[in-house]
């Protein structure tokens, strides 16, 4: 119908700005290298930087998949808001919850 047709038209238009398959493969290679780096923390001793490094790698992988494979980089910002809004709310709420629970390992009133 006309509505979706209009939306479709923009989609079609976007399709031209979309990355090429070659770019997708490049992103996948980057992701593979990052994963190899992640796994290497298990085999080699990275000392104190191991955990911060893993967190950073996780975030980078997350952003790459979301930005390229899920097209967030190229799409309407409202989609990013939905996704990162939900993610932020979850992080804040559950960090608070875990903090409250850990703060009180010795129950007193």
């Amino acid at each position: 119908m006309s509505t979706t047709e209009a939306a479709e038209a923009t989609d079609q238009h976007d399709a031209h700005d979309h990355p090429t398959p070659r770019q997708y493969v490049n992103i996948a290679v980057v992701l593979a290298v990052l994963t190899a780096l992640e796994v290497s923390t298990y085999f080699f001793d990275f000392g104190v930087i191991a955990i911060p490094l893993l967190v950073v790698l996780m975030i980078v992988k997350f952003i790459y998949v979301a930005g390229w494979f899920m097209h967030l980089k190229f799409d309407s910002p409202i989609f990013s808001r939905m996704m990162y809004g939900g993610l932020t709310l979850a992080l804040v709420l559950y960090a608070l919850t875990i903090t409250v629970i850990l703060l009180d390992q010795a129950p007193t009133l």
């Binding site: 939306a7 989609d11 993610l87």
Partner: peptide, 19 residues
């Protein structure tokens, strides 16, 4: 908003999945 309902719905749903 100039976008398809279904895509917006999918993103809305995915946002809630983080929770």
């Amino acid at each position: 908003l100039g976008m398809d309902h279904r895509k917006l719905a999918m993103w809305t749903f995915l946002g809630s999945e983080f929770l």
